[in-house]
Amino acid sequence: MVKKKISFRLNGELREFEIEPNEKLLELLRRIGYKGVKYGCLEGMCGSCTVIMNGKAIASCLLYAFQADGKEITTIEGVSAGFADGCNLPNEIQDEFIKEHALQCGYCTPGFIMSAKAMFDENPIPDDETIKIYTDGNRCRCTGYEKIWSALKNLSEKHKEKLRR
């Protein structure tokens, strides 16, 4: 099969990749080391492979890698609040997940964080309905959804408070 070159901005850095036409974006990202993007159902239903493309949460298992050509892709590795002592620091969404105990096995967490990040970037004060809509493509099979939604509601409240001040 022919290999072809594409380029896109990955976590802020413009990069070029050699891909097979049939390769999915999920496969490419994991092949080059972005293992926070998880394999799940591989049919767009579970959300564990969620990345942000041009500001929108998308299922990287459904997209061919070539569809990312010229776009801007953000993975969980690219959303930390900084770097200290050899570690990425949790961002405000991750902080709320920790405080609210919104994860157990953690497999679905990167996907939820990416969906939430796309939502907060678009709307810093989402209401309950918006939170449910923006996370309706993410499945969690151990924590359940209440704690995840609470974490996101708490952050929405904090943003509201901040704006009031």
């Binding site: 239903m45 998308i58 299922a59």
Partner: peptide, 12 residues
């Protein structure tokens, strides 16, 4: 559109 499967798929 609101009844269409989920956010990740609605977005693409």
């Amino acid at each position: 559109a609101k009844k269409f499967v989920n956010q990740q798929i609605r977005n693409i």
